[in-house]
Structures are given as structure tokens and as C-alpha cells.
Simulated scan of single mutants.
Amino acid sequence: MIIIPALDLMNGQIVRLQQGDYDKQTKFTASPIEQFEEYVAQGAKYLHLVDLDGAKDPAQRQLFTIKHIVEGVKAPIQVGGGVRTIEDVQKLLDIGVERVVVGSTAVQNPEEVKSWFDEFGADSFVLALDTRIEKDQKLIAISGWLETTDQTLESVIENFQEVGLEHVLCTDISRDGMLQGSNVQLYQELVQKYPKINFQASGGIGGLEDLEELNQANVYGVIVGRALLENKFTTKEAIACLQK
């Protein structure tokens, strides 16, 4: 399991939202490049960036800032936030983004997004599937979690397997930003059911013990945002913990 440090960007500045709420945000003073470089210096091999302005309004996508970050940081970066058209994908790949993270659009317009997989290759995408677990069903939430669909996590994954789906970022919404541990059982189930997919776990990592627990699920990677920003542990400590 690899550690994937994550930053959320608003107006060029690092912020953290609680449970995806734009009104509940914490701002951080470090520049995104400095913060990412620090993670890379400590051993991070891959990074995750969310453009919150782009997520709210694709016309406000921070392309110039993202390009500056991608060029300034010596590690591949996956970027998401309001990716809705093939032009959005093209622009991000053109500025050197390693993989484009696609969420709501993949759920609402699957045929359109599957055509992007055909165009650019499955390895260019990470499907971000935000999951709300209700009565043992893993239902997909979209539009910044404001809407819960009747589509299940499994149905979306299986639909995209037709176009060679390789990377899935799965968030248990109830855990996000709460620092209370990951839903290990969820990821164990997914890895067993879909062994060829590289799953990235997201949500709930608050301490090294949470990483140790999650490591048993055999996911490909874990997204860590708030815990690193708030110095619950360092990237170096996290990597050492997983190598034990």
C-alpha cells in the first residue's frame, strides 16, 4: 500500500473542508508546491490534488495554478474536481497531470466517460466513487454528496470494467475528514471481489494505527489529507509504519 498525500485547493490556497462542506473550511498558509515537495522529500511517490473551484464551477478551474504545481513538483499527480467534458480531460493531461479523477460525471453520463477511456486509455483515469452505506447497500453519492443515487458501487465498477477500468478511489463518506479510522471491511470486500483493480482508500485516517489496520485490506494506496496537514504523523512515519 502506498501513501498518497492529498491537497484541496481553493483560489490557489490549501484548504480542508469538513464532510465536503464549503462553509466549513480550514485554510493553511503553506504554498501547494512547498507542501507537496515536503511530502515528496519524505518519500511520497504519488500525489492527489482536488481543485475545489473547478468542482464548484468548471469555468473557474485553476489550470494555471495546477500547471505550476505539476511542473514544480517531482512526483506524478492525479487531479480531480468538476471534470465534466472531454475538453476538461484534454486540458489536464496537456499540462502534465498523470491521471484525471472523474466522479459525478462517470455516474451520471457513463457512456460519455467510457468514450474518454477509449480515447485516452484506462490508465489515464481514476474513478472517484463516493459511497454512502445504507441498509448494507453501497450507494453512490454525487454533486458534492448532496444527492444519493440508486446506483451501487458494484454496478458502476462493473459497467466500467467493460473499458478496462484500472483505478478506483473509493471514499466512505461517513468517515471523511473525521480522523476516526477507515472502513477496512469495505476495502477488503472490494479487493477480494475485484482483484485486478487498484483501489485507493480515502477517508478517516487519523493516526498510524489506522494505516496499520487498513494495510490488511491490501488496497493499492491510501489518500491522506487532513492527518498530514495537522501533523498527526509525517509522510516519512507513515511509510515506515507500512514497511514494518
Results as ranks from 00 to 15, higher is better:
V89S: 03
G80K: 13
F36H: 07
Y194T: 13
G82H: 08
N198A: 11
V126S: 10
H68L: 10
G20Q: 04
T65D: 14
F199A: 12
R175Q: 07
A122K: 11
S174V: 05
Y46P: 09
K91H: 11
G144V: 03
L153A: 01
S155P: 03
V191L: 10
V113H: 04
Q78A: 10
G177D: 00
I3P: 00
F160A: 05
S202T: 01
T235G: 08
G82L: 07
G206D: 09
D94R: 12
A128V: 07
W145T: 07
Y187K: 06
E209Y: 08
Q13T: 15
E87N: 07
G103R: 03
P76S: 00
L179K: 10
V163T: 12
R16A: 01
Y22V: 09
A201L: 07
G203P: 02
P195V: 05
Q151E: 05
E154I: 02
G207R: 15
E230C: 00
Q151I: 00
T29E: 11
E237W: 02
T171H: 08
T26I: 04
G20I: 08
E37Q: 14
E112W: 07
K236T: 11
G96I: 05
S115F: 13
E166A: 08
I133Y: 02
I205H: 01
I14G: 01
P195H: 05
A41P: 02
Q243R: 11
N109V: 08
D51I: 04
D51T: 01
D88R: 11
A227Q: 00
D51F: 06
F199L: 08
A44G: 07
L169C: 12
G103W: 06
F125P: 14
L146P: 06
N198E: 09
L9T: 02
Q19H: 10
G12I: 07
F120R: 05
R61S: 09
Q108M: 15
I173E: 03
I2L: 15
L17Q: 02
V79Y: 14
H167L: 12
G144Q: 08
L211N: 02
V219Q: 01
F117M: 01
L47R: 01
W145S: 09
L127F: 09
V107R: 04
R132N: 10
A75H: 04
F199Y: 13
E71I: 00
I4M: 06
L214C: 07
D8E: 12
N11D: 13
Q13D: 09
I95D: 10
Q42N: 09
T105S: 15
E209V: 14
N231L: 07
S202K: 00
S182G: 11
V113I: 09
S202Y: 00
E237D: 12
D23I: 03
S143F: 11
G54I: 08
V113G: 05
Q108H: 14
D130H: 09
K196I: 13
G80C: 12
L9A: 00
R99M: 10
G96E: 04
F199K: 15
F28W: 05
R16H: 11
A122T: 13
T131C: 06
N183W: 01
N198Y: 07
K236G: 08
G207I: 01
I3E: 06
L146Q: 15
I14P: 06
Q18G: 04
L186T: 01
T29S: 12
E230L: 00
E112I: 05
P58A: 13
A201Q: 05
